[in-house]
Design a binder for these strands. Sequence first.
RNA 1: GGCGUCUUGGCCGAGUGGCUAGGCAGAGGUCUGCAAAACCUUCUACAGCGGUUCGAAUCCGCUAGACGCCUCCA
Length: 493
Amino acid sequence: MPLYQDQTIQIYNTLSGQKEVFKPIEDGYVGMYVCGPTVYSNVHLGNVRTFMSFDMVFRYFKHLGYKVRYVRNITDAGHLENDADAGEDKITKKARLEQIEPMEVVQRYTVDFHNILNTLNFLPPSIEPTATGHIIEQIELIKTIIDNGFAYEVNGSVYFDVHKFNETNNYGILSKRKLEDLIHNTRALDGQSDKKNPQDFALWKRAEPQHIMRWPSPWSDGFPGWHLECTAMSTKYLGDNFDIHGGGMDLKFPHHECEIAQSEAAKGLSPVNYWMHANMLHLNGQRMSKSTGNTVNPDELLSGNNDFFSKAYIPSVIRFFNAQSSYRSILDLTDDGLAASEKGFFRLMDAINALDHLETNNTSTFDVTKWRQKCYDAMNDDFNSPILIAHLFEAAKQINQIKDGNASLTSEDLTLLKNTMYDFTFDVLGLVNVSKTDTGTDKLSGAVELLIQLRQEARANKDFALSDKIRDELAEKGIQLNDGKDGTTFTTN
RNA sequence: GGCGUCUUGGCCGAGUGGCUAGGCAGAGGUCUGCAAAACCUUCUACAGCGGUUCGAAUCCGCUAGACGCCUCCA
């Protein structure tokens, strides 16, 4: 029997503004779409945070035994610099600046994106469609929207008629805006003369002669609008009405609002049952922003080659740091915060690695079954990973108590504890086990063992000058000796 | 200006109308020749003011501050 039958998940739905019991459209199946990156530059860490949060959601659904179809797109065309008619496609612009083909831009940064996500131990999505691979679907969608009277063509471009749509539907339902307010507050941009109203958005743009990325359509040689891509790709693979749509908080308006409008205009129904939005990542108290230089790339964080952090951090520490806060909270990335997470992460790993060497007993002093359900309860409550981690640390404390002989578990309970720890730490949180007491190569290990032995002899002879010299000089070379009850071990850093 | 969010102990970060979050740091202890590491124990909270309530950090209002979206943005 799959686990999900025993667990009730609550999801905070942006659409309703509250937590709702998750009920998939089809029992046992979950359809989830997340807006992927626009591949016009190196993916930045804030970007990664959103995907990391949804990677965890994906992992949890899978762990519960759901069959999940997780679609995360690659935006490789159509994403404009701004909404004005003069707005340039981001990828085209980059190609022009670097004097290469747009598809070279796309290829370069798609590869970069995948490399980073692999390094950070992401699970690949079920389908990763590209916008350029779904031009036909987008054209068909536009035709339908025009036929239904919610879009109009001007000079080869097609725009969505927001005012018309709002007469029968609710434009602003997701972002809690009123069209009236938008009308009063829309900044007047130059070059918007093609649109009936500034609130209208492009479904198809006619390409200027110098524009390389272009496809034929009934209206002009041109390219699709950004909002349209996600509607075309999500509904193609998940159906006209699917379970979950995720993305960054900043996409709520206008991007996701427009997706709803497009779907309703084309199919007559709301596309998504649960809208999930991940909050922003800050860097030292400020929003990451390329324009102010307040940004750090994942590879810079992993290599330590940056101006913000005192050292390099391994991928699992970054994942752990992220999981220690709620996906719905703003998370501030700081050196202190990462360093604190690093220590906690290694402490947790040490406890997990100790599981293999625990002795069992006839009685258990710790209710493992109850604890296990608390772990599920945490994740069931809108994927509350910080609470889950608190429970994992509670288990870590128990493990240490058992090690010290102050607590005990039956072998049955120990197996349950171990399996649960593994499930949540590695499968759900996506952490990778790193033993801090990794002894490195055999050669190194042998040499250090010899030195440890010599030091033991020196200590036995009360030659502390020699023993301390061995300890200190090894430390200088990055080898830390740890004196314990059962002898001395070493760690490298 | 419009709409919305947030303000928790030294730091990060959960949460609930009355019952321990957790991590890091600090303090004390165990261990040790000493130290480090490891482990155990432990002190600091709920922006301010007013209201509802037997009881509020948790609900409501006001004030102050921070932030997000409204233009591209995960």
